[in-house]
Amino acid sequence: MIRIYLIIVIVFSAFISYGQEGTIVFNRKYHWVNIASKLPYLSQEEKDRIQLTWGNDTDNKGEDFLLTFNTEGSLYTKKETEENYGYSWGEEDDIFIRNHKTKMTRDIRILLGKKYLIEDVIPKYKWKMLNELKEIAGYVCMKAETKDTVNNISIYAWFTDKIPVMSGPEGFSGLPGMILALDFNTDDVNIIATKVELVSDKAVILPLPKKIKGKNILYDEYNSRKKKHIQLSMEGRRNPFWEVRY
């Protein structure tokens, strides 16, 4: 039994070593009720009222994002959908472009109505390994936790070492394998892989935008601007996350 298992695993690992290119569709669900329920300036009654009126978010289907990765790097952004029923919102989305060789970002980030091009070292996260296993999109994943100092929250990641690519959604990486799910502050925002396609026979080309333009900035500065906005909004008794990506 064990032997058969091993053979399967060896064949599988041989396969996956070629499988370092591919695409992953992530579904991103923004649970604004959960976010609002944690706002420090609301009274318990106000929080209950939000929960009562908007608490049932079964109609929240989330938005799809696409991570494309090859041996060179990866690109993560909102997936083009036809779900808009004849209405184009025209919102530009952040694009995370990572070069795995040079360990550099070419991220396009939109913050408070301004577009930035961040050419910086890929941010390093301090990952704490946790003892939990879960299956996501057919992969058994392990759990890890990191602290987001900008938002002052915990972010949980589920990664699989069966896709040996140091990458993941929303620019997160640094775990021994692909991150297939992220959970921000326990169900404020959930990102979960719904479809994993590994390609072995043909090269995956990153769908780089034609123009990569934006004001040049580094992550330190970007994060401090974001942090300032969050603090000012909280002081001003306003939910900061309508205007910045959570």
Binding site: Y41, S43, E45, E46, G236, R237, R238, N239
Partner: peptide, 16 residues
Amino acid sequence: YNIKGMKSTVARNDYW
């Protein structure tokens, strides 16, 4: 009497 406690802030919320 309010089961969840009276509101004890004086400023209005901007919006949530």
